[in-house]
């Protein structure tokens, strides 16, 4: 499922990032690369969502979050 639908306060593993070279390089430089685990810090029904990855909080626009495919991680 896309990260935009992920539940707050839970851990998710990034499976696939849809989108071009540009987006993927920017995301992976911030720690959002395929295979890594993120924690969803806040996810309202609209607006950007916030994840915690590698010790830092990152706000991601909703549209971008729709391109990040995740699965729940335990």
């Amino acid at each position: 499922m896309p990260l935009s639908m992920a539940k707050e306060k839970e851990l998710f593993k990034i499976e696939k990032i849809l989108g071009g070279n540009n987006l993927r390089q920017r995301l992976s430089a911030m720690g959002l690369y395929e295979g890594n685990t993120v924690k969803v810090y806040s996810n309202g029904s609209t607006g950007p969502i916030i994840v915690v990855v590698a010790n830092s909080k990152i706000a991601i626009g909703r549209g971008m979050a729709q391109k990040i495919m995740v699965t729940p991680a335990t």
């Binding site: 830092s56 990152i58 706000a59 626009g61 909703r62 549209g63 971008m64």
Partner: peptide
């Protein structure tokens, strides 16, 4: 390009 927010909250 419709820039989406991608921002670290330090």
């Amino acid at each position: 390009e419709k820039t989406q927010l991608l921002l670290e909250l330090p």
